[in-house]
């Protein structure tokens, strides 16, 4: 791969190389009968470490990513209830999903401390953009979300006048125009995001 600059194009089912201690199958490939085959139509990429090189195949289109337990996702709150709130998962990490998936955020998963005293109406409102972590799957088409970390919670919220609010403390956000304060479960976001929002 270092010698020639031309990319190696492969198609699904194409045999790439022998599978042994040196060559290891990576994403986009699979192993069968001691050989590494390609799963996608794309370009072969060799990631070389000290003793082994991982064979990867990158497809021409973005992979259809399905949320997995442990992923940090960006979701939009749709319905707020006393016991849970329903969300729509928009992004997984930095990848924007082409099809939104449903998520549910229970009352017990909002905070890490004082779970009994949590009130959903003081943590989220419909239309908020939140960061959450995916919990292990219990229902078929609904992903369990959790914001029980300091870095998770509401990232973008709009006031009644439609202005983006600024986080003031762990539980409050303030409208820069009317100076009204609203209660939210605020995420600890890097200050660059705040500058970008303005």
């Amino acid at each position: 791969m270092d010698e020639r600059n031309e990319p190696i194009v492969c198609v699904p089912g194409q045999r790439l190389c022998l599978s042994d201690k040196v060559n290891v199958p990576g994403p986009g490939t699979y192993e069968q009968h001691g050989y590494i085959y390609s799963k996608l139509a794309g370009v072969v990429n060799l990631v070389k470490d000290e003793h082994k090189s991982t064979v990867e195949v990158h497809g021409i289109r973005e992979q259809s990513i399905v949320p997995a337990p442990g992923d940090i996702v960006t979701a939009e709150v749709m319905v707020v209830n006393q016991r849970f709130c329903k969300c729509v998962i928009k992004c997984i990490g930095d990848v924007v999903l082409t099809r939104p998936y449903r998520g549910i955020l229970r009352k017990e998963d909002v905070r890490a401390t004082e779970k009994d005293k949590t009130e959903m109406y003081k943590s989220f409102k419909p239309g908020d953009i939140i960061l959450a972590r995916v919990l292990p799957l219990t229902e078929v088409h609904t992903y369990q979300l959790s914001t029980a970390e300091n870095e998770l919670g509401v990232v973008i919220a709009h006031s009644e006048e439609g202005v983006s609010m600024v986080p003031v403390s762990w539980t409050e956000m303030q409208c820069p125009e009317t100076l009204n304060k609203e209660l939210r479960k605020v995420a600890k976001v890097v200050p660059e995001h705040i500058v970008n929002e303005k």
Partner: peptide, 11 residues
């Protein structure tokens, strides 16, 4: 399916 980057064992 291959054009859509759906993982496939072969064509």
């Amino acid at each position: 399916l291959a054009d859509a980057s759906v993982p496939m064992f072969g064509l």
